[in-house]
């Protein structure tokens, strides 16, 4: 067979309860079940995770770096969204 027939999947692991899933790598698989089994073998040999997410790479849409300005710059001058913007006494534990 040709590996091209198999979709590429991205693998995400949650390392502990309460922590987000984090991208760890990718693999080829026929379907979700197969991707899950391969992810377990390839990425969790040392109990790195308590939960696995697999998603077809083609389902992921990534922003392009040339769009970064448009996407992210508008937040740059909105410093009033951060707590440090406000002038209140440290002692007040606000």
């Amino acid at each position: 067979m040709n590996n091209d027939e198999l979709d590429l999947w991205e693998v995400f692991l949650r390392s502990a309860r309460g922590i987000e899933h984090k991208h760890v790598g990718s693999l080829h698989a026929a379907n979700a079940e197969h991707a899950m089994e391969s992810a377990r073998d390839v990425y969790t040999r040392r109990q790195e995770g308590i939960s696995i997410w697999v998603v077809r790479s083609k389902e992921i849409h990534a922003s392009q770096s040339e769009d970064s300005e448009m996407l992210f710059d508008p937040a740059e001058d909105k410093i009033y969204r951060h707590p440090t913007f406000y002038d209140v006494s440290e002692k007040l534990k606000l």
Partner: peptide
Amino acid sequence: REALSVYTAKE
């Protein structure tokens, strides 16, 4: 690989 290929096509 062959089994996987047939399986994928069927799915």
